[in-house]
Write a protein that binds this DNA or RNA. Sequence first.
DNA 1: ATGAAACATGAATCAAGATTCAACTTTGGG
DNA 2: CCCAAAGTTGAATCTTGATTCATGTTTCAT
Lengths: 203, 203
Amino acid sequence: MNQDSTLGKTPKTARGQKTREKLLRAAELEFGESGFHSVGINDITRRAGVALGTFYVYFESKEEIFRALVGYMSQRVRSWIAERLVDVPDRLAAEQRGLELFLEFVREHKGLYRIISEAEFVAHDAFVAHYTAFAGAYRENLEAAGRRGEIGAGNYEVWSWAIMGMAVFLGLRFAEWDDEAHPKEISTAVMDLIASGMGAKGS
Amino acid sequence: MNQDSTLGKTPKTARGQKTREKLLRAAELEFGESGFHSVGINDITRRAGVALGTFYVYFESKEEIFRALVGYMSQRVRSWIAERLVDVPDRLAAEQRGLELFLEFVREHKGLYRIISEAEFVAHDAFVAHYTAFAGAYRENLEAAGRRGEIGAGNYEVWSWAIMGMAVFLGLRFAEWDDEAHPKEISTAVMDLIASGMGAKGS
DNA sequence: ATGAAACATGAATCAAGATTCAACTTTGGG
DNA sequence: CCCAAAGTTGAATCTTGATTCATGTTTCAT
């Protein structure tokens, strides 16, 4: 229908660009703090420092800006982690470091984390897209590591979803609810579980 | 304040009891299918086959009935699984069977599953209570198994959250989104991961 | 059998908040 | 410098849907 999928709402001017960004930033904070249904458009515009009507110059609806945010930050988490995961020796190390990074990210961006979670109900398609993409990438990493012999054979599709789930719940418990524990402790504990299993060990 | 915490809304009659249950059952279906915010009180009453006003005879508000539902089903999942987990030989077997049961439960009760998830945003305290209770029980199981020497030492608090997260995400992917895969395949794949780790094995 | 307590009803009320709009201001290319 | 396009404004409009309430019906303990 439309080249930009944003129905001609794309700003043409520097000023417009700036305003749109102010709205996005404000929405990120508001949604992150209070959740989709308790924030009103006027909360967003007030925080952005623009008038109510301005909102509709750039967005079709409240749902659209939320959806935009989900896409935006789905991008962010993944690239933020990927960037810092370059010089890691092998898959197991990547696993551990990746979890630490994820926990750190959540602590610094609780709002974004909540936005993705809430997307399950507010923008289900965006939610599906996010985790599908994430799991897909993850699975490829596992397969590559498998070919390199760094990890054993297994059902990598299942593994990738299992590991994502772990990360999300640990983020909930040890980043969103409780800031105290050191990420390294968590990641180490998880590595005990994932690397060699819970079967009785030497200790 | 009140003996029953339900502000005198508790039914005194057999008829009342029945009506309240009809409402609860209807709400379970509606919330499960459409999510908290898109169901109206009249959707619930229509489905229950009672008049709109009747709702407020038994519940203070839409949120209250949702909260009641969360508690109700938090109970249900746990006991449903626990009941069927009696004659299991050891912790590892319990782990595998428990996951299968969870997946089966989700398939049969997708609505209830969604209700608990959505509680994170609609009834945060009930959500916290549910997972706190679940994790607590889980942790005790792990500790007991640890004392019996069935599993190795580890940070059981972290493990229990990790395993819950796995279960929830696998439920999302392989029960809510996709009914096809056999639960046993999933649980087996996970056992590979959890029992002996992803480190390279014989195969 | 009977009347007070319980329960049921659904039209009317009310609040909240999303969206529209017509008037006004700024920008930037020519 | 000039004006059409782009952007801004916020009061007014419109929907939606939760909650109330006055009235009628049923239950059940006495």
